[in-house]
Design a binder for these strands. Structure first.
Lengths: 227, 227
DNA sequence: CGAATCAAGATTGTTCAACAATATATTTTA
DNA sequence: TAAAATATATTGTTGAACAATCTTGATTCG
């Protein structure tokens, strides 16, 4: 009997399962940015009742993946520049907290090491899709240094939003390539307990990553203006 | 047409209104800690349908005020020691971020000043209930220094959880009294741009506050053991 | 022609009743 | 007494229905 405290979507219930499926479709970019999700249609597509679907919608809205306008319905969120900037502000605060919380021999390091290695292999294979996921997993693991379920949950939230943003970009191609090495450098600094180097590397990563996303975002805006 | 992006409960919809009412009752301690909330009964009490109530429950679950166990129902969350410790870990990370983000003449300072003043008056009147609320509002305002809606949202989440914990304590009497002056000191350090003093004062506040809550919590456990 | 008005039409908001699936309580049996 | 079986209550989910609100398109008027 697992307790569902917070935001882990429960596959147990149908509503939860539907929420998970929709979330994966959102992250995979299978909906148009800003698209309206009709209760009738989506309920029919997933073969569930409207009431059940509405529960799933509520869940995804609380995850900031869908936006909800009373009496008008539910829409696919399109993270704009302000959202990206804010997301990276959250990341900076939380991940700096992780640097300060880092203690020698913390179990999170093991996972980070595995992920760095995996990242290298994926990079060699030019599988940029998976490199992106791997990169996020690495930073998720890093936040694990805080040993704080709530900080991890908050971090997961902005990360999911970031994935949504990625999914909406056309060619995020090798947007993540440069970070394979940066992550390695960061991990080494963390493991040796060098706070200053860790902070510097982290800040460099965040700045570069944010710029990359903002750039790609602007590129899209230019290609596909307001309709 | 206000967009409901995130977690602001929408009074617009009935489900949202019910969620807000239940949340206020939770924070006011009008439910037993750990109490099960029957869908039938609560739906009848609030004169809404089960489906609508379930939407409200989902919302409050995402707020970590209710816990949800599939096929068993929804229960009033009882923050334990681990939760309190984690909450203060989140507070430390976010509020330290606020200290670093603090910039001269930031609008948040105005509000903080008002709240410090109000806190003094409430303290003089021995209205400890409102002193508690005022204290939380002060720190909420402080997080506003980050200018990050998402950090504020995360902070609101843990603060709501903390209020739930307070509501479950019998005599939180003047648990908040010492902080009236500490908040003033903190504000002064922030406004003068003295990062070091700000950090020191913040850490002192968080440590003291956490101890106070943990102590009160242990006191309750002793008085009312597991049934 | 353009803007405001008004009436369909569609969508969301909410309820209700029903039934299946699961958990809880009670009784029976060993 | 302990385990098993039954009965009862609760949650999970559905479908239909109707009210409230939004959207659309035609109509009218300036």
């Amino acid at each position: 009997m697992t307790i569902r405290t917070t935001m882990e979507a429960d596959e147990a219930s149908l509503a939860g399962a539907v929420a998970i499926r929709i979330r994966e479709m959102l992250i995979a970019g299978e909906f148009e940015p800003g698209q309206k999700l009709s209760e009738h249609r989506v309920a029919a597509d997933f073969a569930v009742s409207r009431n059940t679907l509405r529960e799933a919608f509520r869940f995804l809205t609380s995850q900031r993946l869908l936006s909800y306008i009373p009496n008008r319905g539910v829409f696919v969120v399109v993270p704009d520049e302000a959202a990206i900037i804010d997301i990276y502000r959250v990341r900076a605060v939380i991940q700096r907290g992780a640097v300060e919380a880092a203690s020698r021999g913390h179990p999170a390091f093991a996972r980070m090491r595995v992920l760095v290695e995996e990242g290298r292999e994926l990079g060699a294979r030019r599988d940029w899709q998976k490199v992106g996921t791997n990169n996020m997993e690495f930073h998720r693991a890093m936040v694990g240094l805080c040993d704080s379920p709530r900080l991890s949950a908050s971090f997961d939230l902005v990360l999911a939003e970031l994935r949504l943003a990625f999914g909406q970009l056309k060619d995020m191609a090798h947007l993540h390539e440069p970070y394979i090495d940066l992550n390695h450098t960061l991990l080494r600094a963390l493991e040796t307990g060098d706070r200053l180097a860790s902070m510097t590397t982290l800040d460099a990563y965040l700045l570069q990553s944010e710029r990359g996303v903002l750039g790609a975002l602007q590129h899209r805006r230019a290609a596909e203006p307001v309709k």
